[in-house]
Every structure is written in C-alpha cells, then in structure tokens.
C-alpha cells in the first residue's frame, strides 16, 4: 500500500499513472458515500452518483489548482451533484433546508420503541437521519470527516457563521429530543 499524500497522488495521476487514482477513491469513497446517503436517503442512488463524481473529478483534475485541499474540492463536487439531483427530483429542499430564521424541529418516529429500550446512541443515530439535508451534511463533514468549519464553509460555499449556526442548531435539536424523550436519567 502506497503512503502518498493527496497532492502526490494527483501529481502521479496527472503524469499518466491512472491506476493511482484508486488510492484517492479508496480514501474517500466511504466518507462521501455517507454524506450522499444522508442527503439522498437512498444507497443505490448514492453509489451511482458517487461513481459519477469520481469520474467528474478525474476529468477535472487539471482544473484542480491546489488552492484548497483535494478533500474540500471533491466534497464540493459531491455536495453540488447531490443538490442538483435533489432539485431535479423536485424535492422541496429549499423549504426543507429551512432558512436560518426557521426553527429546526425534528420529530422522532422512534419515540415509542426507543423509550422502552433507552438506547441513547441508537436514538441519536435515528434522529440524525431526520435532519434536513444541509444540517445532515454539516454534521457528516464535521464529525465523520473531521473537517473544520472553515473547510465545510468552502465545500458548501456558505459563510462560516452559517455553518456554525447549522452545527449548533443540529446539536440543539438532538439535545431537545433527548430531553423531550426523558433520556436525562440515562445520561446523568
């Protein structure tokens, strides 16, 4: 297994070693797949789109100027492709993404079952699936990919303040659900 940085891999691919592109694919496929599944809520569709995104990125490698990290640049491709797919499916994402003035309100379909089990982790993970697209994307990039808020704002082409607000609101919404569903005793 070669231990190359993204920049070294890209340089090698540009030189004609196309097989090195597999290193980039292997590095990012699962993380990007998680993001797509959280956005599109469909695993098969997400995998197809991810394949297209890798092809698109390969074709555009010459345009990658290394002003940002490859991961941020690629996230932007994936995120924008997913948004395009969502809008082509005529989902009301703008409404769902909710402007920052709107209150983020998620309902738990699992209240009844989960209250009996009192499995906090499971409960939180189920709630994440209900987060609106943009919020779920921020959570995915921040926690799963360990991206900083600055990198997320570059990838999502949104202001840093908006990213922080979305991150905080997501956490608050999850916390409110925990309180509402009487998980306090489990946690304390």
């Amino acid at each position: 297994m070669k231990n190359l940085t993204d920049i070294e891999i890209i340089a090698s691919v540009k030189k004609g070693n196309h097989s090195d592109y597999t290193l980039l694919i292997d590095k990012y496929k699962n993380k990007e797949f998680s993001l797509l599944v959280r956005m599109l809520k469909n695993e098969m569709e997400s995998e197809e789109i991810l394949q297209d995104c890798f092809l698109k990125a390969f074709k555009s490698l010459d345009n990658f100027r290394q002003e940002s990290k490859f991961s941020t640049w690629f996230y932007r491709i994936v995120y924008n492709t997913a948004l395009t797919r969502l809008s082509s499916k005529k989902r009301e994402i703008e409404l769902e993404m909710s402007s920052l003035e709107n209150h983020l309100d998620i309902k738990s379909e699992y209240d009844y079952q989960e209250t009996e089990q009192k499995d906090v982790s499971k409960f939180i993970h189920k709630l994440i699936e209900q987060l609106p697209v943009k919020y779920a994307s921020v959570i995915n990039m921040y926690y799963l990919d360990n991206m900083s808020c600055e990198e997320i704002s570059q990838a999502m082409e949104t202001s840093l303040a908006n990213i922080k607000v979305m991150l905080h609101r997501s956490r608050n919404a999850l916390k409110d659900q925990l309180i509402k569903n009487n998980y306090a005793e489990e946690i304390l």
């Binding site: 496929k29 998680s34 906090v120 959570i139 799963l144 608050n172």
Partner: peptide, 20 residues
Amino acid sequence: RLAMLQKVHRELGKLEPLEV
C-alpha cells in the same frame, strides 16, 4: 442541558462511515 449537549457531541463523534 450541558450534559445532554455533551452527550450529543460525543455520540456524533462516534459516527461510523457507511460502506460502499
């Protein structure tokens, strides 16, 4: 409230990537 928020933060940190 803080304990709940910290719990959420910790749980989110445990997120595992889905596999293709």
